[in-house]
Design a protein around this nucleic acid. Sequence first.
DNA 1: ATATTATTTTAGGCTTGTCTAAAATAATAT
DNA 2: ATATTATTTTAGACAAGCCTAAAATAATAT
Lengths: 217, 217
Amino acid sequence: MISLAEENYLKSIYHLSQAGSKSVLTNELAEAMNTKAASVTDMIKKLSTKEFISYEKYYGVNLTAKGKAVALSVIRKHRLWETFLVEKLAFSWDEVHEVAEQLEHIQSKRLIEKLDEYLGFPKVDPHGDPIPDNNGKIKALQQVMLATLKPGADSTIVAVRDSDSHLLKYLDKIGARPGKIIKVIEREEYDGSMEVSINNQRFFLSKEVSENILVNA
Amino acid sequence: MISLAEENYLKSIYHLSQAGSKSVLTNELAEAMNTKAASVTDMIKKLSTKEFISYEKYYGVNLTAKGKAVALSVIRKHRLWETFLVEKLAFSWDEVHEVAEQLEHIQSKRLIEKLDEYLGFPKVDPHGDPIPDNNGKIKALQQVMLATLKPGADSTIVAVRDSDSHLLKYLDKIGARPGKIIKVIEREEYDGSMEVSINNQRFFLSKEVSENILVNA
DNA sequence: ATATTATTTTAGGCTTGTCTAAAATAATAT
DNA sequence: ATATTATTTTAGACAAGCCTAAAATAATAT
Ligand SMILES: [Mn+2]
Ligand SMILES: [Mn+2]
Ligand SMILES: [Mn+2]
Ligand SMILES: [Mn+2]
């Protein structure tokens, strides 16, 4: 019915449109999918024919309701599997993303329902990302990059970007996990780096890192 | 590295050669793979080039050590996943095969090691089939089709064929599970059907059914 | 030993998903 | 308003995995 490649494209389009309505451009998608613009154009046509996306030549694509449902179903599976790997199989949070990239394509409604139940219907995955429910409803978390906070502010970590395992190892080391309170001590304007405190310990975070930590808005 | 299609071919070749040494013929493989002989010949050439099989034109194929290792690894994954689905997710034994056909292709050594551990290093899957160990060692069970037993004999069920969910539902209903003792009361020579007793209950089994129940030799 | 039949391989073609190079279009700068 | 640059699409090709039809080979029957 729907191929693995198609599912991955739809998922990428969803992420790039940040669940929003702005069109996703060919080159963005090419970069995200680690492929070439020409290949993206080819796939875009197929997805458009199948009505998973609406496509205006030269101006990018948007998910249809149908396409969004597929994307959310894949994301649901991804996040449930990540939760399973961490909670049940004792994986660390930096090891799960790649495996979940494979597991998210397993086709079995029954499996994902049973898995959800087995895990106790979790609301967020190990990185703090919300898990869409069975009907494709996802709770849009009010979140903002740590990088945008001003000195003096303190805030709770909501989620962290999950696809770079080196980043995750580092965040784990400094204790930057969802639920933790993080306080901005100082911020260097010229490079965007900041000093923060987590668990009463101080750390210097590069802009890079502080953009990958999401705190509540 | 190795594709899903290639893995499935190697698994099929393994099963058809019944872990033995007799060559597997093109048409056998075509039937098992639900494909055409011409397609099989194409794939056979690829697998031969990659040295997963030895191939003598017109006389069938045999797994190399390398090919056998791949086949056993896929079978190991299949059976561990089936065990997981039944033991942890409360699937019934007739629902697991199809899902396991997908899960067996997930590539992650770590995942399968963790899963094995999580399941307590099971030796057999829900249908009684032995699970190859991490090194590709598989315990060749001494087993024989129930159909070959003579009246009066009683024997323990070791395994049942796992790929027909209707058969499995039926076997479940009559209590024909691995570990159960089954006794042959009578056998009709003309159609190979037999009357048996399981748990002190009597059943008439067609030849079809009695060939899909494996008992210890 | 030869003819018939069954099996297997080859030839040529199709779809999916990818690529490079060239052409078309849009965006930006002068 | 036009020229330059950046982006996107088209054209043409390729590998994987499948197909049908035809040719080649092996097995079997006479
Ligand atoms: Mn992930
Ligand atoms: Mn995640
Ligand atoms: Mn099975
Ligand atoms: Mn089984």
